[in-house]
């Protein structure tokens, strides 16, 4: 949709139009979790975040009319993050190893709920590490 305006820069009206689309998408991403289907929430939350980010980059940052090298540079850094994730995730996302065991106690749903109730009913907070007073 930008091709016709490419040589004149964007008009204010065009920006406002993009803005309304962005707000509509924000609305969808807030309503999404209310439906309660997990995969749908993932799409409404992160799928829409990607589209929103792309729209801001393309139309507000004007990447759509910028020299291609800017796209390539930014895309390359994103690719690099993917490399980072792929290399690190197998280790960091591993809950146990052969020669060590984790002493970390992960809260269960019940424990968390009890703590949440305590935090939101009494004035006293429910910190379980004892160093929350910092």
């Amino acid at each position: 949709m930008s091709n016709s305006e490419e040589h004149h820069g964007h008009s204010a009206k065009h920006y406002v139009k993009i803005y309304w689309i962005l707000l509509a998408m924000l609305g969808v991403s807030i309503v999404g979790p209310e439906i309660g289907i997990k995969w749908l929430t993932l799409i409404t939350a992160f799928g829409i975040a990607l589209v929103k980010a792309w729209m801001v980059c393309a139309y507000f940052m004007h990447l759509n009319i910028e020299k291609k090298i800017a796209w390539y540079t930014l895309a390359a850094t994103l690719l690099l993050l993917l490399v980072f994730f792929t290399g690190v995730a197998p280790d960091v996302m591993k809950p146990e190893g052969q020669n060590w065991k984790s002493l970390y106690h992960e809260q269960t749903r019940e424990e968390w709920d009890a703590e949440y109730d305590a935090a939101h009913h009494g004035d006293d907070h429910g910190d379980d590490h004892g160093d929350g007073g910092h």
Binding site: H120, G126, H134
Partner: peptide
């Protein structure tokens, strides 16, 4: 923070 969700909670 006032509900106890400080940086140190988790």
């Amino acid at each position: 923070i006032s509900h106890g969700y400080t940086m140190f909670k988790s």
